[in-house]
Every structure is written in structure tokens, then in C-alpha cells.
Simulated assay, not measured.
Amino acid sequence: MPVPELPAKGGRGTTRRRERRVSKRWTVSAVLLDMDGTLLDTEKVYFDSLVAALNGCGYNDDVVSLCRSMVGLPGPVCEAMLLDRYGSAFPLAEVNRAFILNRDRMFEATLPLKSGTIELLDGLAATNCPMAIVTSSSRRTAERHLALAGIRDRFDTLLTLDDVTHGKPDPELYLTAAARLGVIPQACVAVEDSNHGVAAAHAAGAITLMVPDMAQPTAETRTRCAAVLPDLNAVLALLRERGVFARQSS
């Protein structure tokens, strides 16, 4: 089961406690990976694109805070939040068109990966560890963005908002991903970047790791995580420390 995040600093007693915890092996059958903000450096593009779209349509109140609260949520939920805030007369179609135009313009040159993405995927592939993408994006968007980033062929299993009734923070995506891979959720490591994503993975019963992107973890989120880590290279190192790869390759 998940353990609390380990302190970054401390005395000799803290070091001994950390060593004891790190030596504890995890029983892991698969690794489930969020896409936006976790593998792909897209969340800031989405955020900036939506803020610009709202400003361009005449909405200049505290849209930055509103857009920040949407990080990690499915598109339909974000749209409902906009309608709830601005009322039924809100020009949703116009804002969506402006958002897509802004987003696609920013992605024209390249779609960057988060630091450590390739190293983590290489490590998982080298030991034949089953893995899946678990994203709140639509299948069309996920297919396009993974292809643009050059990593679509890394995944045989891709779970998107189109595969479930409820997106994150509901656990349905993670439960469905585990079922597709033929494993129990409690034997999965989930890697997320947002508070909403962590809530979904934890509710499914997965060993949940967070690599924060646009938003830092709340106090409640920290209690749901086995660890909060600085980047995907740290995720790879922790999986190795916990013996995940050793069992997969044996």
C-alpha cells in the first residue's frame, strides 16, 4: 500500500527510516501513466491557450485562477465549470474555437516531452513491464498528441475519456485500464501530475506517484501518494529501488 512522502532532509534517524522504507519491495504488475503534464509538456499550453481565448472573448476577471482549477479535468467538466460561472449565455463554441486555434498554433513546431519521459519508457520496455496511457483527453487528441511527440508506438493500451462514462477524478479510467491489462488495481503503479489525477488513481487502489506540473499537491493529495517526486527520472529510480524491474525481468 502507499506510504507517505519521504522527507527530503533530516538527521541520521531520518536516513535510517528512509532506507528501511525504500528497501520494502512493491508487488507491481503494471505501470499506468497519465499523459498531459506527466509524459507530455502540454498543460501550460492548454492553460495559456484557454486564458488567451477567454481574454479574447472579453472575459478578463480572475480567469487565471479558474483555468488553474481545471488542470487535470476532462474537457466536458471544464465546459460545465465555465457555464456555471458565466451563465447559459456564455459563448462556449466561440471560446472553444479560439482555444483550439491557440493550442494548435503553439503545437505547430513541436510537442515537447517532460524531462525523463524517454528514460522511464525505455526502462519499462527493457523489462517487459506492462504499461498503459490513462488520460482524460479524448482518443482523437491522445492519438494525435502521442504521435506528434513521437511516442505513440510505445503503447499497446490507451485509455481515454471515450472509453469510460466518468473521467478523473472518478477512478473509472484506472479501474478500466487495470482490467484491460488483466491485473488488479492494487498491483499497479500510477503516475500523475495533478491533484484530480491523484484522486482518481488513489480511489482505484493504485500505488500513486505524483510529479507535480502546473499545481503543487494539496495536503490531502500528499496523503494519497506513495511519493511526490521532482521528475520522471526520480520515478524510474524509485521503481528500481522498490524492486519493480527486478521482478519483471526475472
Rank of each mutant, 00 (worst) to 15 (best):
R152H: 13
L83I: 09
I118H: 09
R85K: 15
E79W: 14
C67E: 13
T135W: 10
T135P: 01
C78Y: 04
L50V: 02
S29V: 10
R97M: 11
M35K: 08
V45P: 00
E43A: 03
N128S: 15
P130M: 15
P76E: 10
G123D: 06
N96I: 03
G72W: 04
E79Q: 15
C67A: 13
D61A: 04
R97P: 00
T141D: 03
A52W: 07
M81G: 12
R25W: 05
N55T: 12
W26A: 05
L33R: 08
E119M: 10
E94R: 15
D41A: 10
G75D: 09
F90K: 09
L113I: 06
E43N: 02
I133L: 10
A98W: 04
M35R: 06
N60L: 11
G72Y: 01
S136D: 05
M106E: 12
Y59N: 06
F155R: 14
C78A: 11
G58F: 09
L82T: 02
A142H: 06
E108H: 04
S49W: 07
L158V: 13
L83S: 00
V134P: 02
E94W: 03
A132E: 12
V63M: 11
L39F: 01
K44Y: 08
A98N: 03
N102R: 12
D84W: 13
S69W: 05
G56R: 15
M81H: 15
L120N: 04
S29Y: 10
P91A: 11
L73T: 03
G87K: 13
L33Q: 04
N55F: 07
E108R: 10
A149N: 12
P74C: 07
L39Q: 06
P130G: 12
M70D: 03
E94K: 14
R103S: 01
S136R: 15
K44F: 08
R25Q: 07
I118F: 01
C57E: 07
T42P: 00
P130H: 15
T141A: 07
G56A: 15
E143Y: 00
S138D: 06
T135M: 11
T38K: 13
A125L: 10
C67L: 12
S69P: 02
V28T: 11
L113Y: 06
A89F: 14
C57L: 12
I100W: 13
L66D: 07
I118G: 01
N55P: 00
G123S: 11
S49V: 04
